[in-house]
Design a protein around this nucleic acid. Sequence first.
DNA 1: GACACAGTATACCGAACGGTATAGAATGAA
DNA 2: TTCATTCTATACCGTTCGGTATACTGTGTC
Lengths: 192, 192
Amino acid sequence: MDNREMILETALDLFYARGYDAVGVQEIAERSGVTKPTLYYYFKSKYGLLEQLLEGRGEAFMERLHRACTYEGDLRNTLCTAAGELVSFAEKEPKFYALFLALYHSARENEAYQAVRPLVLRLQQEVEQIFVSAAGLLGNMRGRQRQFSLGFIGLILFDIKMRLETSGGLRLTVSQEEINSLVHQFMHGIYS
Amino acid sequence: MDNREMILETALDLFYARGYDAVGVQEIAERSGVTKPTLYYYFKSKYGLLEQLLEGRGEAFMERLHRACTYEGDLRNTLCTAAGELVSFAEKEPKFYALFLALYHSARENEAYQAVRPLVLRLQQEVEQIFVSAAGLLGNMRGRQRQFSLGFIGLILFDIKMRLETSGGLRLTVSQEEINSLVHQFMHGIYS
DNA sequence: GACACAGTATACCGAACGGTATAGAATGAA
DNA sequence: TTCATTCTATACCGTTCGGTATACTGTGTC
């Protein structure tokens, strides 16, 4: 692993454990086995480091999520696919997932929240797209696509987080059945 | 409002807006119209300030929640009461509610998370107690009281948060019907 | 008046913060 | 060999961090 990759990895570990603001650039550099100028050579600022971390780790995920969110006539199926994608991402990158969730809920006027906004917006758009496409099926949604998608995201994200925590640390296994059950739970609320 | 109360109010504003770690003691003191030693006279450290803020604002709420979570034979009813209590709290103290939620999701090894843990645990215990009491009614829960309570909390908390955000800022109004609908959505997932 | 005590301000501490000027090493191309 | 480019380290910058030693002011008690 080269220095740049090493710095990103260390930053993820530390931001995940203690939060963006509570971690100093000094410590990231030291734990990466480099000095500060090296860090600033690759990332022009602490904020830039966070940006590149989120961008790099989030990009591949977003592409796969985009494909998973393509509606093809069956809402339940699409939601299951999307939920499965979120789950498998959390399985592969538990630390990044936890960091993302923490930033997602962090203070609005904080630097770190600004950095995660692009990812948040894309996630919301992808999921909302499902409900927009399924509008005909669901009947009159009266513009509630947003509310539905936010509810869906909240349910899945929080559920994954809780499973991550209950499993002690960073192991996570969610069966297809459990995903189906979650989606079922969500959908009934809408139809009723 | 005396100085102590003024400091607490200012701290809530700033922590809410930018997060615990991103706000300096200096700024809290200045915006409160006092100097640092005054702040340290009332709260022996920055962490102590956060603790007292959470304790003071959270105590009354927890007591009311405790009463709301007392199971009296009707699970749906009890869940609606508990959800209603959470909602009415978020209506009255939107900033504190948002801060609580941010800390709830913040990094585990961060000071701020340690400070909010007591509140988090009590909230979880209160809600879990509902499901423990209702165990007979629900049939064999196989120790899933925890999972149910966490799912319930996640659903309600996230829903409120989203309503707060969608409503632009700090206004929130949730009708009894909407609460009933949420609880209904939650329960069907369990029974199915 | 003398005293105690709660509350506040001036002025300061060492440490850590994010960030940088500068120079040296390593590498490959000409 | 020379040169440019990429990467890295030494040593430093001004600022802010959380926190405090000390002394002063008000107020009520005796």
